[in-house]
Structures are given as C-alpha cells and as structure tokens.
Design a protein around this nucleic acid. Structure first.
Length: 800
RNA sequence: GCCCGAAUGGUGUAAUGGUAGACACAAAGGACUUAAAAUCCUUCGGCUUUGGCCGUACCGGUUCGAGUCCGGUUUCGGGCACCA
C-alpha cells in the first residue's frame, strides 16, 4: 500500500466525534480552559500561519483530556469593526452579509483542523444577544463615571476616515492601513483606563506571560516618578507648572518650553512675536504625528515672557516648541540643556545658555560637548553642591514642597481610551442625549440598542457616524424625563466585544446575566491563552482592564483573565510574514486535500520551535507524511496478531513515553515529533525481527492521539477497542525499564575525544578508568595529572 | 538611540557545561520493478598522507572539557522612541 486513505479516515472520525464528542463528560474532573484568540472573519480566509496557533492549542487541549481534565476549548468570531466594514464596502454587500459569508468559510476551514472546539458554545460579537452585554458593561462603566465625553484632538486616519485610539495609532501611523495619522477635534466617548494604571502595572507580576509582552505593557503604561514644579510667571500672578523626573538638575534650568497646544501659548506671547507664533502653532497642528516625530531638528518661537526658577530666582525665557508633547505631564517643561539631549539640541540651535549642575566625578567642565544624562554629584547648585543625585532629588523636592512651589508626583504614558468610532459597523453606544438631562444611559431592560439597518453605511468625511443620518432612529425620548432626545450615533471600537468574550463561553446563551456566576467560577480564569504577539498592548491590555472593572462591580471574582499566555511564532514564506494580500499565503485547504489533516497538524509542529518564527517549506511535509504512513503500516501489519513483548521493544516503549512527555511538558513540540520519528523507526526495525506486542502498539496510539487524532482513533479501533482513544489515560514511563544493559562511555585526553568504550550498566569508576586506559593504550602517554569520571558518560585524562 | 530575540551543513533544525549536526528535507548512488510510484539500503560540514586535523558569526576569558557560561564586536529580525 502506498499511503493510507486519510480522506476516508478523517471523514469517518469527524462524524463519530460530532455524534459523540470526546470531551463531553466532565464529572469529577479538574477543569482546563484553553483559549485561542478568536479570529476576525476576514474575506481572505485562513492560511497555514493561522493554523499554527490553532494546532498548538488543540494539541494541548487533547493532551489535557488524556490527562483526565475536563477541557473548555471554544471558538467564536470577533466580527465588528473596520475590516468587516471595508470588506463590505469593497464588495458591495452589507457588512452583516459579508460577515455571514466569511464566517461560513472560515468555520469550514477551522473544521478541517479537527480541533476539539465545542461549537455549541460558538459566539459572535455582532449578535445582538451578545452585544447586549457589551453595551451592558458600557452602561456600568458610565454609571461609575469611567465612561465620559470629551472634546479633544484625536488621532484621525484620513484613509479609514476613523478616529483611532492611542494604541491604534502607535508610531504615528494607522494600525490598520499604515496611513500617517493626523489630528482632528471631535467630541468623543472616553474610558478612564488610567484609573486602573497602577493595578494594570502591578498585577503584571502575577502573570505567567512572555517577558516581552509584560515589558511592552509596562512601557505602554509608562509610570515615572518625579516632581511637579511651579515656575512663577514674571509680571503675572499665575505660574507655569512643569513635570520633571530630575528635580536634582533644577539649578541647571536655563529656559522653559511649552507645547504649541498649551493653553498659555498665545497668552504669553508678546505683541511683536504674535505673528510668528501664530504661524508656528498653525504649522505644528497641521503636521502629522509621523512628521512631528521623525523631524528631530529643533524648532521653536520665543514667547517674550519669562518664568522664575523657584530655587534661585533666575528669569528663564519661555519658548514654544513642538518637541514638547501637549498630553504628557503638564505640556510644559523646564529645560536643562547640560543634562538632557533634547534640551541640549534646542539650546545649541537657539544659542541659549548651558549650565552644568551634575558632574560624574565632582569636577566641573568649562564646555560640554553633549548632555550628560546620568546621575552624579551636584555642582553650581548653591547649598546643594556636593550632594548625590538621589539625595538631591529628595532634598530639592522637599524644599519646594515647604515653599509650596512643588511636590512629588507620578506620571503615566497611558492615556484614557478613545472609545467611540464614527463608523457604522459596531455596537451602538447605549446613550441618549437629552437637552434637559444631558447624557443618559439606556435602561438595562431596553438593551440591546440594536444597530439599525441602513442603506448607506459608508463613512462620512465630516467625521460623523452614518447612523446620524437615520432620523427615525436618532430621535427618541429621554428615559429619564420622557422629553425629546437624540440617540448617541457613535459606535464602539472593534476591541469592545473582544475585551470580555472569554467570559461568555462558559454560558453563551444566558439572557439574564452576562454569564452565570457559578459557571464563571468554574471555568475562569483562562488557564492557557494562545495567540499572536501583535495584541500585546491592544486586546490584552483592554481585556485586563475590563476584567478588573467587572471584578470591582462584583461580576467576577478574579482580577486577571489570562493566567498563562503563549505567543506562537509567525510562519514566513520567502522570508516575509505570510499574508494572502502579499501573495505569499499558503492555503491549508490544498495541503489537507493532498496530505490530510493529521499530516499538516504534525508538520505545523515539526516546522520549528513554536515560539519562534519559522519558514514554510512545502517539501518538508513529505517527511511527516512518510512518518505517519510508516506508523500506519506498523499498526496495520501487527494489530491482528501481536507478538509477545520483547525486552528491547519494551525499553524503546518507555523511552518513547518519557521523551514525548517531557518534551511536551517543556512545550518543545518540534522535538516531540523528532522523538516520535526516532523511536518508531527503531521500534519498526525491532518489530521486523520478532513482531511487536499489543501494549506497545496501544501506547504509540495514545501518545499520538493529541497530534494525529484521526489515525489514533483508527488505530485504537484496529486494536480491538470500541471506545474512543481519548477516554484513555496518558501512559507513564518506568525509569527502570528505560535503562540499557550497557553504557557507552566517551574517553577523552585533555577534553578531546579519543575513543569510546562500552561497559555494563553497573560498571564502577575504577572499572571505567581501567577500561579507558586499556582502550587508549600507547596513545595515553605522559604523566596523568587528573582523572575525571562523569558517571555513565565520560572518562577524561588530564596529562602533562 | 534604547530594549528584546537570533546567528550551527545545500535547507529546516537538534544538543541538563560532557561524542556537534539527533530528527527530517533536498541531493547522489544502489536494491526491488517490464517501467513508474511506493518502499528499503548506502553516502551526505571542510581538509586529509585515511592516521587524523579543523569546524557552531568574530575576538578574548573561565573550565579537565564551551554551540552552551562571562566580557567585547559584527550582522540580521522584532519592539519602542522628542514621555522631560
């Protein structure tokens, strides 16, 4: 036989599993919640790179089932948001129809993987019965004051015609399309994620997550300690407030800079500088974020006003420059050119004084070539001279506090979350605007606020939602006073539905509560979460925020949703990330058709370490296919008349169990496959001599089940069983039975390999050394300084 | 600029500080076959006087022994970046 009939077998077992799920009985078992990041049902379908994560989580799920766990392994659709809307616009269909078609296609593809997904728990974020609860959470946040409206300059993507959250505009380009982001003033709904900044930061310690992701979230939250200092404005009653992390450098402040968006920028500008200032502020506003960031050359305009250093009373020029960010700290800084690179550049460009106040070694320098940004000893700092930076930070801050001109403070890079989108395809924000009562939440018994059907759902270029055009939907009554009112026409961002979906799977059809508290208690938190690293600060930060909020209002009893996170590596093709639109996507459909699901599953593991990127190589699949066929022939030839167990095969069996189990536990899945190949090759060789026993065949079958579930079930049946292989228990290796009768010992001189000797397992150190000397004979000359013996491995002679 | 990965045969890669290249792919040769497919066997880092010598990006160090640990350098990939 050339090859087993994988099409027949895979079809057969899929049908059996559908009728009798292998994971149905959970009575008395510990739980294991294994979750994939649910996919966006894009029109492009899945490629083999998507398969990787799904195969990894399924191998783990099936392994846990065999270890006696009741496993929750669900799947659903994150279907609101821009891509679905853009797909619909491009193809001239309604977004809901586009989503329906894409879901059907991807679901078909996902079924090809034969994962143990419980499709009875399938969820879809665009289902009103689901987004009822997305809206409900928003209402709870609104009631707690965490959702608020604000007119503010927002990240605006001219191509998507959409407002973007800071997370979506990272690097100054649109997260979706790469277009440079500009600013636009609009009224927006905001979520006060900053209220949770400290908890989001601190609880990162409790998570078993990749270090990289923890670091990225830490940097995104960006907590820094420092001081807020008031610089009285010369000739005015008010003061300019600045934030600094280095109050120890206060004596070195030689000028000040405020951002072009600062509320005092115009006010402080003296008459003769006004024209130039207006022009500068206008230009800064028009510059895209990218341009503003990319251009490191310092520009600026002097206001003509002065601030007064609270420590030494010196008058400092106040400038306006776009290198100061409006929304970090106070939007104003004190400038210490001697000890800050940017201030140094600015001072150099405009000929402003540079005064050294921190010295590495206590000596002063007449001229600095560049800023010294490290800590050191204070100089030119009056009575603080000679203090170390740390001491001076406290000393100067305390002094300012006593004078009422400064205080210790903490700053975060994290901003509140811009939560509204002026697009059609999202959850309507459940708010009604009443002239008398203001913004009023839609009562919970009126949720969901369903997304109305609309003829034209294309984005408007004015920045208004297409929903604003449906007057019969917009006009409503105020739930509070009964007077005329208008519905909020903005919708929620794509992340809204995905920020809590993992809570819904345990109880996907509940229409009374978000999910039954008992079921939440049983399944959550998620034990193992598998997905791409691209969500490090978007979805994963939002989901943690939502979970903490729901904890605070008593919906869940835990603070962190995902105990363990695993980021699978990308699959690249021709060195680039696999992408259908990039022309290098490989469809799993074709591979499944020509090699079968089991082969592709194993190849996805064999391709490389799961956490690293791996290059797709179609030809290498052949090796996996040969391996499965070889095992097939072994089982097929011996299932009917197994032989009596041989010592050698028993030994190989235990080694196989040991290697597969330890490597699986280390998540070294590529080497699990190697171990399988290595030992089944050896076992097949032995079986060719004297046959193979039934227990070994059964062991191979159970071990293989998480990886190649169809052939494993088929083997199990061939071996005379009528139940599922997944009702079996994962085998245990017996260390005693793994041991060989003989050991091979490497003989070295000075650490270099000279010979190998074979000894009995019980050989002593003396016997090993003696045997090594015999083996070396005349090659061992000179005085032996040292004899090193590593039991069972090495004899090494150090000679002079 | 800062942070984090990575660098091993023609290719993907493997090696608790202990025989570098397991397991595969590709290639070459052979067996079986009328033939092909499938399968099986052999070779497969370099040099070589066939005894060995060299070899894990580069330079040094620790060690009886280093792909692995330490210090420095280079290249590639990723993330962050005017955050005061």
């Amino acid at each position: 036989m050339s090859s087993y009939d994988f099409k027949e077998i895979e079809k057969k077992w899929r049908k059996v599993w559908e009728e009798k799920p292998v994971n149905a009985d959970g009575a008395g078992k510990p739980k294991f919640y294994c979750l994939d990041m649910f996919p966006y049902p894009s029109g492009k379908g899945l490629h083999v790179g998507h398969w990787r994560g799904y195969v990894l989580s399924d191998v783990l799920s099936r392994y846990k089932i065999l270890q006696g766990y009741h496993v929750l392994h669900p799947m659903g659709w994150d279907a609101f948001g821009l891509p679905a809307e853009n797909f619909a616009i491009k193809n001239g269909v309604h977004p809901s129809d586009g989503v329906k078609a894409n879901v059907a296609n991807i679901k078909r593809q996902l079924k090809e993987i034969s994962a143990v997904y419980d499709w009875s728990r399938e969820i879809n974020t665009t289902d009103p019965a689901y987004y009822k609860w997305t809206q409900w959470i928003f209402v709870q946040m609104f009631k707690k004051g965490l959702a608020y409206e604000k007119e503010m300059p927002l990240n605006w993507c001219p191509r998507c015609k959409a407002v973007l959250a800071n997370e979506e505009a990272a690097g100054g380009v649109c997260e979706r399309c790469g277009e440079p982001v500009t600013k636009k003033m609009l009224r927006q709904w905001m979520l006060k994620i900053t209220a949770y900044a400290d908890r989001l930061l601190e609880d990162l310690n409790t998570l078993d997550w990749p270090e990289k992701v923890v670091k990225m979230q830490t940097e995104w939250i960006g907590k820094s300690f420092g001081a807020e200092i008031d610089f009285k404005l010369d000739g005015r009653d008010d003061a300019l407030k600045v934030f600094t992390t280095r109050p120890d450098t206060l004596y070195g402040a030689t000028f000040m800079v405020i951002s072009p968006e600062h509320s005092l920028a115009r006010e402080l500008t003296v008459e003769e500088n006004k024209a130039e200032m207006e022009e500068y502020i206008r230009k800064a506003g028009a510059k895209s974020s990218v341009a503003r960031m990319a251009d490191k050359d310092k520009t600026g305009v002097f206001t003509g006003s002065y601030g007064i250093n609270p420590l030494n009373g010196e008058k400092l020029q106040v400038w306006v420059s776009d290198y100061v960010l409006a929304d970090y700290g106070t939007g104003a800084i004190m400038c210490v050119p001697a000890h800050d690179d940017r201030d140094f550049d600015f001072a150099t460009a405009f000929g402003l004084p540079i005064v050294e106040v921190i010295s590495k070694d206590g000596t002063t320098h007449s001229k600095l070539e560049k800023a010294y940004t490290g800590e050191g000893t204070l100089v030119n700092s009056g009575r603080f001279d000679g203090m170390g930076s740390d001491e001076a930070i406290d000393g100067i801050t305390d002094f300012l506090a006593q004078n009422g001109t400064g205080k210790k403070t903490v700053n975060y890079k994290l901003r509140d979350w811009v939560f509204s989108r002026q697009r059609y395809w999202g959850e309507p924000i459940p708010i009604v605007h009443c002239e008398k009562c203001g913004a009023v939440a839609v009562p919970e018994d009126q949720l969901p606020v369903e997304l109305p059907n609309v003829a034209s759902y294309q984005p408007t270029s004015t920045g208004e939602s297409p929903l604003a055009g449906i007057t019969e939907w917009v006009n409503t009554v105020c739930p509070q006073c009964g007077g005329p009112a208008k519905r909020e026409t903005n919708t929620m961002p794509q992340w809204a539905g995905s920020s809590w979906y993992f809570l819904r799977y345990p109880d996907p059809n509940n229409d009374k509560v978000l999910a039954d508290p008992e079921l939440l208690k049983k399944w959550l938190p998620v034990d193992y979460y598998v997905g791409g690293v691209e969500h490090a600060v978007l979805h994963l930060l939002y989901a943690r925020f939502y979970t903490k909020f729901l904890h605070d209002i008593g919906v869940v009893d835990f603070e962190e949703p995902f105990t363990k996170l695993f980021n699978q590596g990308m699959i690249t093709n021709m060195g680039r990330k696999m992408d259908k639109s990039g022309g290098n996507g490989v469809s799993p459909d074709d591979i499944v058709n020509s090699y079968g699901c089991d082969t592709l599953r194993i190849y996805e593991l064999f391709i490389g370490p799961p956490e690293l990127d791996s290059e797709w190589d179609e030809r290498s699949i052949e090796g996996v296919s040969r391996f499965l066929n070889k095992v097939w022939r072994l089982v097929d030839a011996n299932a009917q008349n197994p032989a009596k167990v041989s010592k050698e095969i028993e030994r190989l069996r235990h080694k196989l169990i040991h290697d597969v189990t330890t490597r699986l536990n280390n998540w070294s899945l590529n080497t699990v496959v190697s171990a399988f190949m290595e030992y089944t090759n050896k076992i097949t060789e032995q079986a060719g001599k004297a046959g193979i026993d039934k227990e070994t065949l059964e062991t191979i079958t159970i071990l293989l089940a998480p990886f190649a579930p169809h052939v494993a079930e088929e083997f199990w049946e061939k071996l005379g069983h009528s139940d599922s292989v997944f009702s079996q228990t994962w085998p245990k290796a017996d260390p005693e039975k793994m041991k060989d009768d003989t050991i091979t010992i490497v003989v070295q001189i000075g650490g270099k390999l000279r010979d190998t000797i074979i000894l009995s397992r019980e050989a002593t150190k003396e016997e090993a050394i003696a045997a090594a000397k015999v083996a070396l004979g005349a090659r061992l000359s000179g005085e032996i300084v040292k004899e090193i013996y590593v039991p069972g491995r090495i004899v090494n002679f150090v000679v002079k």
